[in-house]
Write a protein that binds this DNA or RNA. Structure first.
Lengths: 154, 154
DNA sequence: AGAATAAAAGACTTTTTTATCTTTTTTTTA
DNA sequence: TAAAAAAAAGATAAAAAAGTCTTTTATTCT
């Protein structure tokens, strides 16, 4: 589905959204440890996201990454498009470059429904909304929460 | 989404379903030329599909690949699972190994809807049904048809 | 039986993705 | 103002995916 880069990125963004603030930034090291993701790889990817201002960053002591209020009301589609390229949500399921609604492949019609579902997942809710669920009771045992707990309760 | 291998495989299967029969098998060379796909790469992939009997093949003169009646009533999900592995339709959208309905990631609930749409595309219709659409009027200009025409009208 | 045809199988190469390492720049604070 | 902290940037390495080439095996037809 998505590349590893993209999955790491989504997890990191959600982690930052739920754990960091402007006055409590998190370094790559901490995020990488919490999510069990290769640290230098994560660093590069967070820099990509920071460059286009999907997340925020600051250098120096007490520096690190976080999401500003503006960042929090954006959605996950942008994260995906930044890391996996802009075509993930529009390219033909059979990989045909000339496929379009005017010139459909035999799966085109049905693929539209699937694509809308995916867009729905990534676009309908803000990053803040998704991140808030991490702490909710029904998610208490969820993988992301577990990672967070591992980090907070040594 | 799917790997290139898988896209090539889906296109080849649909092409074979619409163009080949038991008494008119098609060689790798012909399929590769029609679909504009690297020939030796396609060969390996068709062999994978033939090994698990998703498609049929015969060696020797007048040999080649085709779909038997039994092959034609199967669906495209099997093609995908053969070429991209069995987890494409079930793995977590964030790549979390421990994610499940009992232990959901914050996107799990919504991801179920998207996954069902995808399964619907790949599973609800038989290969024959999908392949038949290639020749239908509303698909006359579709990419796969164009490729077929290119091959049949030199 | 022998020649030709085409898939099957396996080894190999290239490209892309994933991952790592090193140096530089910026910022903070003592 | 110097030291430390952390992101930014860039070069390098390993692994996986994509693509190619060569040899073997099975089948058909003359």
């Amino acid at each position: 589905m998505f590349s590893k880069t993209c999955k790491y990125g989504l997890r990191a963004v959600l982690y930052l959204a739920s754990q960091a603030q402007e006055d409590h930034k998190l370094g790559v090291k901490q995020v990488a440890a919490a999510l069990e993701v290769p640290q230098p790889f994560l660093a590069k990817l967070l820099q990509q996201l920071a460059r286009v201002q999907i997340i925020s960053s600051a250098k120096g002591p007490n520096g690190g990454f976080y999401l500003s209020d503006k960042n929090l009301v954006a959605n996950l589609r942008q994260v995906v498009e930044c890391l996996d390229g802009p075509d993930v949500f529009s390219s033909c399921i059979l990989g045909l470059p000339s496929c379009s609604s005017a010139n459909p492949c035999p799966l085109h019609q049905q693929a539209v429904a699937y694509r809308n579902s995916l867009l729905d997942v990534m676009e309908r809710q803000t990053i803040r909304e998704v991140a808030q669920r991490i702490g909710a009771p029904e998610y208490a045992q969820s993988p992301l929460s577990l990672l967070i707990k591992k980090d907070n309760q040594p």
